[in-house]
Design a protein around this nucleic acid. Structure first.
Ligand SMILES: NC(=O)c1ccc[n+]([C@@H]2O[C@H](COP(=O)([O-])OP(=O)(O)OC[C@H]3O[C@@H](n4cnc5c(N)ncnc54)[C@H](O)[C@@H]3O)[C@@H](O)[C@H]2O)c1
Ligand SMILES: NC(=O)c1ccc[n+]([C@@H]2O[C@H](COP(=O)([O-])OP(=O)(O)OC[C@H]3O[C@@H](n4cnc5c(N)ncnc54)[C@H](O)[C@@H]3O)[C@@H](O)[C@H]2O)c1
Lengths: 217, 217
DNA sequence: AAGGCCTTGTGAACGAGTGCACAAAGTCGC
DNA sequence: GCGACTTTGTGCACTCGTTCACAAGGCCTT
């Protein structure tokens, strides 16, 4: 379930405040979901709650972490060390969740050898070697869109089966490989869509005329 | 619909290649969805296809853009000019979709006055003034988590009703305000979850013993 | 020890979204 | 013009996730 990480974050926050036990109602509020949904989600992992009391925060953190596979370390490589890749490399929120940034790769020779967040940038030619040596299991693609598919093909050929893609294209991969896409431009477009709705929305004929005019220019 | 921006991107790509007409089958493949779903989505905007032929790329681009509100310009402010805020500010993919980065705000006095991507960073104290002056309609929050709720409250109080949040917390906002969350850490956790599944998954008793040991340490 | 109180876990109803399959509708060749 | 072909638009069945509501179960007070 995609909501487990959200619960986990809420639980950590509770733990930091010294809270040992939490009811489904409270946790649901902190995570921004319905309490019945939360209980059903948690019941899929097993019966880890106590009726009349709630859930023990520490134990639940452990159970969710285990379910998500966070009790082991994941080795991550970032490909494309531009604006975005740099920001990701320097972000501390990953390491604390068991994601180890093992390698930074880029095609630009001027970047190769530069040290970012304690890691030396290597040349993309060494992709296959680096993946094998570090045992990379998750690849983050932060190259321009034109290079993304090629890079993706290469990491998949090297045995990586989980890809996080920031480039604005649909990657095609064989079965068995998971790709998740983060497209910030799409997020903004969805906000704009709702914003427009609030303001009254499109207006039929008048808009149609605008199109005809625009095409005629 | 959240898929419209994906279709739009695929259509632009087709247009760049000089393709004037596309069938639902082809477009669906390019967008990575089922063709029936695509047709149903498009039919919600009206009947813009021609049976036996397909959809006219240019006209469809216009219709989707209009539906999404991209025929008008949206004014965006970025709050928190750290690693991430900087990457966003310099990204060209927003301007080309009608999103104008109008303002960068930060609490750090050392950053105030610095020029990033052609925009002077201003102090967060001027938030309300800046929002009013530029007519900001979308706020992007890229501050640390602890500051995010306070910043959010202030932009909402200033009349902004669309927020894109990168901080790893659940923001609470009044009705009528849209918040979209981008949480990269969650994306990685979801990948790890599936990766673990492929590798065999958690293993009952043995894991339980591990927990007991971990707690006893 | 027993009853009241609180919270979990879940059965069942509901609703949204998906995919199939086909009729309607338009094009193109003859 | 007319018929064969192509592709859209959509009715329908179905699956999946959500939500309500409540019985089952454990704790705490008396
Ligand atoms: N910066 C943002 O805020 C932002 C927002 C949304 C999407 N994106 C997307 O993320 C991607 C990266 O964005 P960015 O702003 O960091 O771009 P960038 O141009 O700053 O960085 C891209 C990096 O990729 C490297 N590169 C190019 N081809 C490569 C290859 N074949 N192999 C390895 N490395 C290669 C380049 O040398 C460069 O360092 C782009 O696809 C962009 O569309 C970025
Ligand atoms: N960098 C990443 O790759 C990444 C990934 C996932 C999530 N995030 C999240 O995005 C947010 C920003 O990340 P970052 O790496 O850019 O952090 P950062 O520390 O580099 O930048 C944060 C910036 O916010 C400013 N700031 C602090 N308090 C403020 C306030 N009250 N008002 C205005 N500005 C304020 C700081 O001065 C700083 O410049 C964080 O919440 C982080 O958890 C970042």
């Amino acid at each position: 379930m995609a909501r487990l990480p959200v619960y986990l974050r809420a639980l950590h926050s509770l733990q930091d405040r010294g809270i040992a036990t939490v009811s489904s109602e409270e946790l649901a509020a902190a995570a921004g979901v319905n309490s019945a949904k939360l209980r059903k989600d948690l019941s899929h992992l097993g019966s880890y709650g106590t009726r009349g009391v709630g859930y023990e925060v520490e134990y639940l953190i452990y159970q969710i972490s285990r379910e998500l596979g966070l009790t082991q370390d994941w080795v991550v490589a970032i490909i494309g060390v531009g604006n975005l890749g740099r920001a990701l490399a320097g972000y501390g929120g990953f390491a604390s969740r068991g994601f180890r940034m093992a390698s930074l790769l880029d095609a630009d020779p001027r970047l190769v050898g530069e040290r970012i967040a304690g890691i030396d940038v290597e040349h993309i030619d060494r992709l296959e070697t680096v993946i094998a040596e570090h045992g990379v299991s998750i690849a983050v693609i932060a190259t321009p869109a034109v290079a993304a598919q090629e890079v993706c093909d290469r990491v998949v050929a090297s045995g990586v089966t989980s890809v996080l893609n920031f480039a604005p294209i649909v990657l095609s991969v064989p079965d068995g490989v998971d790709v998740r896409k983060v497209d910030l431009s799409i997020e903004l477009q969805i906000l704009a869509f709702h914003e427009q709705r609030k303001a009254g929305g499109p207006m039929g004929e008048q808009v149609e005329r605008e199109y005809v005019e625009a095409v005629e220019l």
